Amino acid sequence: MTATSEPGGARASHPEPPARLSLVPEGVAPGRLGGAWWPRSRDLLRELPPLAATLAPSWGEILRVTVNPAHWPVIPRRVPVTGHVIHVGWFEQEQDAEEVVVCSFVPRRLDLLVIPPETEAPTAEWLMTAACEPANTRTATELLAAAGAPTEGARTGG
């Protein structure tokens, strides 16, 4: 079962740290993925605003994000960010459990490997580099498996 929520409660006003993100360099055709994102938690209300802020200068205003609910215990339908709202959706079967798809106003689409928050730094660094390789043909799940990081199937026993 996937839980959804509507943003309602006030959050602390302390600024979130910038998103841990690596992207294929501008002007280079991406491989299978456009980069990798290493969130600090599994809280989309907390994690999406820094991701949107980091992407905005080069990707424009982020309007929609799709996730696989395997990663996120609660999926808010809308996430407020500076000046607008990001609409969040999910695809359980069609989308790799280890990936997030970001769509911008421009319009552009960015497929990112989601590195589990509990991943150790050396492994996360390798994954961030591997996901940005223009010659990469591996899926997000395949990259995590190659790095020895737990995939959603391994985390849930499936």
Rank of each mutant, 00 (worst) to 15 (best):
E6D: 05
G8I: 05
G9T: 04
G9E: 04
A10Q: 15
R11M: 02
S13I: 12
E16T: 01
L23E: 11
L23A: 06
V24P: 10
V24A: 07
A29H: 08
G31V: 11
G31T: 07
L33H: 13
G34Q: 15
G34R: 10
G35V: 00
A36E: 04
W37I: 06
S41G: 05
R42S: 03
D43N: 08
E47Y: 12
P50C: 13
A53G: 01
T54R: 15
L55F: 07
A56S: 01
S58V: 08
S58L: 13
L63K: 03
R64I: 00
V65M: 02
V65D: 02
V67C: 10
P69N: 06
P73V: 02
V74F: 14
P80E: 00
V88P: 09
G89H: 15
G89Q: 12
E92A: 14
E92W: 15
Q93R: 05
V101M: 05
V101C: 06
V101N: 09
V102S: 06
C103V: 02
S104A: 09
S104Y: 07
F105L: 15
V106T: 08
R108T: 03
R108N: 07
R108H: 07
R109T: 07
D111E: 15
L113Q: 11
P116Q: 11
P117S: 11
E120H: 14
T123C: 00
E125K: 07
L127K: 14
T129W: 13
A130W: 06
A130M: 14
E133A: 15
P134V: 09
A135W: 01
A135S: 08
